[in-house]
Design a binder for these strands. Structure first.
Length: 562
RNA sequence: UCCCCGAUGGUGUAAUGGUAACACACCGGUUUUUGGUGCCGUUAUUCCAGGUUCGAGUCCUGGUCGGGGAACCA
């Protein structure tokens, strides 16, 4: 497929975002021979979250759209915070999302040797020097926005001396913090990052990949552009916060005379009622405010997966939020919409009663079991059908019966008639309450000739209720989730505020829920619609064959204003 | 105080000097053996002031507001 084919076709009607426009311009002008290579460069110091999912979809999606490929590169230049646990989790999440790093898997640490050589090159070109001052001293010389900085006393150190000291740093002859290597740029630049930034520091810390091989580690700015360049990345896409870094990114590439990768920044994803900072997510985990990185309330990919989100829904969501340069806050309802939209088409429907009370059909003989046919998914005829046991004693939802009701009430009540989904129309007879007025049982009679699909009774029922036959039900636990934070902007206030903003009711555990028998076969990864209730999936952590545990991914949209 | 970026309905995104549109949310109607889905519809938008132009959301100037920017983090 030529690039032009990718540009034409059905997709061409969709408006292009600013990066797509730029790429099409690049292709048209023959830049890099039309080659497109992007990269996704996570630091392995935390789990991927929904914000990363957007970045992933942008970098992978753009490459795919224009006939290119994408590299996965672990940006592991700071061994203090990084570990192989995170590397594995990131790989797993990427694969689950359905992305394939066809360009290959790389690590910035693969380039430590080349980066060291680049540093020597800068020293030899008089563009880097070793500074032996303390961090505080260097900070004070940095100046301030609007005020130029002053030069380090070591700024004009002789080339040979710089080289020797840097080689000694590498050889481990100097202690942590005793020396750094700095780029020699411009101490009065308006961009503070260009005021002789530190590019190498000493750290006597084992690296999760290179072990004790190195005691000097490159800083982000000295590693990122060069790594892009080494891999021949054509379009290096990152978030807005790196805009100020672009001049530095370009300065290194130009000074070293290496392949000119080009950085373009776009706005990261923000979601209301959600925190996206890795540091704060880590805090939630460490303080046990949640059940680990994959708690179903977490915005992590692993949390969303455990909750019942599908990769398709997440990718659709990422597509819909768009790519632009202005800061944004997406409404979580868009994420939920994407899930419902996907699951409505695909999820098998089953019956489950979360807060069960007895429903006794008086005119059905006890012991009688009738197997009724029901569609697995009315949206998808291919999904087929199954049978459901029906009998005298059923479970119904406590919420579906009320004594005092108005005309908007469609469900069961004294004097009312409702249809039991895929079964019969039933009419109220009486009910039993306990001392506190809690309804324990509702008694109804089945309307003759009202069987689902062959109803000739002429009786019309406004409401339809879900139910489960008591004789064949499976008892299980169901976990309902609400948003983790009460405030729409939990990161907005003071830094520590987000922990005080936790929603105390974000997790509700229901036991004694009654499920239809087919759910005994439920397996991890399949998401079901519990009729009238929402989408649910088996919890991958706590569910056992003897005691199933389900998570609610999202409710059904509730149109009832009752 | 200085530098960079941005500003279009409630929330996002488009309109590339020529009728401000699409999605989500909201509200209403309709269909429905899920108060779901589907279908139809309502409400609502160019930060401000000048300028250029036959014509400005778009270009220019100035302002306002928001975000980012000083780490031996990425």
């Amino acid at each position: 497929m030529s690039n032009q084919d990718a540009v034409d076709g059905d997709e061409s009607k969709k408006p292009l975002n600013f990066i797509e426009q730029k790429i099409e311009l690049d292709i048209a002008s023959g830049k890099n021979g039309g080659r497109i290579l992007t990269r996704f460069p996570p630091e392995p110091n935390g789990y991927l979250h929904i914000g990363h999912a957007k970045a992933i979809c942008v970098s992978f999606g753009l490459a795919e759209k224009y006939g290119g490929i994408t590299n996965l590169r672990f940006d592991d230049t700071n061994p203090e915070k990084e570990s192989v646990e995170y590397v594995d989790a990131i790989r797993r999440d990427l694969t689950w999302l359905g992305f394939d790093w066809k360009g290959g898997e790389f690590y910035t640490s693969d380039y430590f040797g080349k980066l060291y050589a680049f540093a020597l090159q800068l020293i030899d070109q008089g563009q880097a020097y070793v500074d032996g001052q303390s961090a505080e001293e260097m900070a004070s010389q940095k100046g301030a926005p609007g005020t130029p900085g002053t030069s380090s006393p070591h700024r004009d150190r002789a080339l040979e001396e710089n080289r020797q000291l840097f080689e000694e740093m590498k050889a481990g002859k100097h202690a942590d913090g005793s020396y750094v290597l700095r780029a020699r740029i411009d101490m009065s630049n308006d961009n503070m990052l260009l005021r002789d930034p530190v590019i190498y520091r000493i750290k006597f810390i084992d690296h999760h990949r290179t072990g004790k091989d190195w005691v000097i580690y490159p800083m982000y700015d000295f590693a990122h552009g060069q790594s892009d360049s080494i891999e021949g990345i054509t379009h290096s896409l990152c978030s807005l916060e790196f805009e100020n870094h672009r001049p530095l990114y370009n300065w290194f590439i130009e000074s070293l005379g290496i392949f000119p990768s080009e950085q373009t920044e776009f706005a990261r994803l923000n979601l209301n009622y959600t925190i996206m900072s890795k540091r704060k997510l880590l805090r939630l985990v460490e303080d046990n405010a949640v059940d680990g990185w994959d708690d179903p309330r977490m915005p992590t990919i692993s949390g969303l997966r455990r909750r019942g989100y599908t990769p398709e829904a997440i990718r659709e969501f990422a597509d819909r939020v768009g790519v632009a340069k202005r800061n944004n806050t997406i409404d979580v309802s868009l994420l939920e919409w994407a899930l419902r939209d996907d699951l409505n088409r695909r999820a098998p429907r089953v019956m489950a009663v979360l807060n069960p009370i007895k429903l006794v059909v008086l005119n059905v003989p006890s012991g009688e079991v009738e197997w009724l046919q029901t569609d697995n998914n009315p949206e998808d005829p291919e999904a087929g059908s199954r049978t459901l046991p029906f009998g005298r004693e059923l479970w119904m939802e406590a919420d579906d019966f009320k004594v005092d009701v108005n005309k908007k009430w469609f469900r069961l009540a004294p004097g009312r008639t409702v249809r039991l989904k895929s079964a019969y129309i039933v009419e109220y007879v009486d009910h039993i309450e306990d001392d506190q007025g809690q309804v324990l049982e509702v008694h109804v009679n089945r309307v003759a000739n009202s069987k689902s699909g062959e109803d000739t009774s002429g009786v019309k029922a406004k409401g339809t209720l879900h139910w489960v036959a008591a004789s064949h039900s499976i008892e299980s636990e169901v976990r309902l989730y609400d948003r983790l934070f009460m405030s729409a902007d939990p990161e907005g206030g003071e830094d520590t505020n987000f922990m005080n903003n936790l929603n105390p009711d974000s997790l509700q555990i229901l036991s004694g829920c009654q499920l239809e028998p087919s759910l005994s076969e439920a397996s991890i990864g399949v998401v079901y619609q519990f009729t009238r209730l929402g989408y649910f999936t088996v919890d991958s952590k706590y569910s056992k064959q003897e005691k199933l545990v389900f998570n609610r991914a999202v409710t059904l949209k509730d149109g009832w204003k009752g």
